[in-house]
Amino acid sequence: MNSSVMAIILTLCEAIRRGTPLLLGTTGEILNEKSGSLNLGVEGTMAVGAITGALLGLSTSSLFLALIGAFAGGMFCGLIYAFLTITLKANQNVTGLAITIFGGGLCLFVGETLKSSGKFPAYTTEFYSVITGGGIPLLKDIPYVGQLLFSYNALVYIAIAIAVVVWIYISKTKSGLRMRAAGENPAAADSVGINVDAERYKNIIVGSGIMGLGGVYMALFINNGLWNTDWINGYGWIAVALVIFANWSSARAIWGSYIFGLLLALKSRMPSLASAFPSILSWSTSIPTELFDALPFIVTMLVLIFTSMRKHKSTGSPAGLGLNYFREER
């Protein structure tokens, strides 16, 4: 009895663990898209955030600095993207892909170079305990519930907080309103005096910073601060899909990312679940793990198809998404 409950709880914990970088990536991308920018560079942005944050954090053994570094790295990518698509009016799709390729390459390059030269910082024991430990001191000892709700590292809670703040910003503040206007109908926003370009710049850069946080999470908490070539591993693309799944609301994205996190967690947790519930889940051992890997993408495809099939198209997707705004062409 206990072990089956534990199996479930552990699975859920893993789901939340896996879901956190998704949440960060999705929230960042929501900021991008709501202001009208379809930023496909999430994967690359997360990679850059991962490497800068990890390097900074590991060498200083400070989680705080790691987060700062990651945010800065993400902002850097966001700045490039914003400059190219807003000021230089480049095609958003292609620019985003360029960021992905560049960012991923940069992360690999720096990581491998440092690794092979032996200069990749290793974590100190105290930092390691920060990475692997975490949790709110007293609350986490509550049986079951404590494990489920209070035993995570700081970034998990920060991610939720960020998602909530972003949600408030978008739907409840005046700046968020203006930003939405800029994404929805730049010409109308312009006519009222909203600076469409500035709104986009702001949101792209901050959103990319948040994505960077997602990246460093992958590096430090999922890969435990150890270098390997697959730090981001497609989570960036899942985030892009999650935005649609969450209907462009970062509050919805919270539970959306945990659901996807569950799908991802099942890959490693399925065997223990199966042994905990043999009667129901014995068939599951024959499911290839690759199916679990592919599941988030398949689910996203289904979401994409079904949302586009809906006749009554009231989505949170801004009408001006993906289109560059050039005031002259009024």
């Binding site: 309103l177 939405r180 929805e184 109908n185 109308a188 006519s191």
Partner: peptide
């Protein structure tokens, strides 16, 4: 003649 309004707001 063509209104400059944001439909979703």
């Amino acid at each position: 003649q063509h209104f400059k309004l944001i439909d979703t707001l």
